[in-house]
Amino acid sequence: MDSDAAMIPARNSRPPLAQAALGVGVIVQDTQGHILLGRHHSGTWELPGGKVDPTHESIAAAAVRELREETGLEVAERDMAVFAMLHDAVGGINRVTMAALVRVESGSPQVTEPHLISAWQWTRPEALPTPLFDPSAQILAAWRPGLGIEHPPAHRLSVLPEDAQVKS
Score class of each variant (00 low, 15 high):
119 A>M: 13
133 F>H: 15
11 R>P: 02
145 P>I: 07
159 V>K: 05
61 A>D: 04
47 L>R: 00
74 E>C: 08
121 Q>F: 11
23 G>H: 05
75 V>W: 02
157 L>S: 08
80 M>F: 03
98 M>A: 12
6 A>S: 15
91 G>V: 03
11 R>K: 07
26 V>R: 00
110 Q>V: 13
37 L>D: 02
94 N>I: 09
66 E>F: 01
138 Q>F: 04
70 E>K: 15
106 S>P: 02
127 A>G: 05
124 R>I: 10
103 R>P: 02
126 E>W: 11
160 L>F: 12
29 Q>L: 10
47 L>P: 05
134 D>L: 05
132 L>G: 01
119 A>W: 03
17 L>C: 12
60 A>T: 06
128 L>P: 00
69 E>T: 08
36 L>R: 00
76 A>L: 09
97 T>Q: 09
136 S>H: 03
104 V>D: 05
37 L>F: 01
132 L>M: 06
66 E>Q: 14
100 A>F: 07
168 S>A: 14
62 A>P: 03
137 A>C: 09
82 V>Q: 00
116 L>T: 07
162 E>A: 11
54 P>V: 06
125 P>K: 02
57 E>L: 00
137 A>S: 10
48 P>D: 07
104 V>H: 07
23 G>Y: 05
21 A>K: 11
159 V>L: 15
22 L>Q: 07
74 E>L: 09
25 G>W: 00
123 T>N: 10
16 P>F: 10
57 E>R: 00
67 L>M: 06
5 A>L: 15
57 E>I: 00
80 M>C: 12
152 P>T: 11
89 A>L: 10
79 D>K: 08
110 Q>Y: 07
126 E>P: 09
138 Q>D: 05
8 I>R: 12
82 V>H: 01
125 P>L: 05
159 V>Y: 04
29 Q>H: 07
77 E>A: 01
96 V>N: 10
77 E>I: 02
79 D>L: 09
136 S>N: 05
95 R>N: 04
150 E>K: 03
54 P>K: 02
31 T>D: 13
2 D>E: 15
71 T>C: 11
14 R>P: 10
50 G>E: 06
154 A>V: 10
43 G>I: 04
168 S>W: 14
67 L>F: 05
124 R>P: 06
156 R>T: 13
58 S>M: 08
102 V>F: 00
146 G>W: 04
70 E>A: 13
98 M>D: 05
126 E>Q: 15
113 E>P: 02
109 P>Y: 02
35 I>W: 12
94 N>K: 13
73 L>N: 00
145 P>D: 11
122 W>P: 08
105 E>I: 14
45 W>K: 03
37 L>S: 01
79 D>G: 08
32 Q>C: 14
138 Q>W: 03
1 M>G: 15
70 E>Y: 06
146 G>H: 10
123 T>R: 14
14 R>E: 12
100 A>D: 06
113 E>K: 15
17 L>E: 12
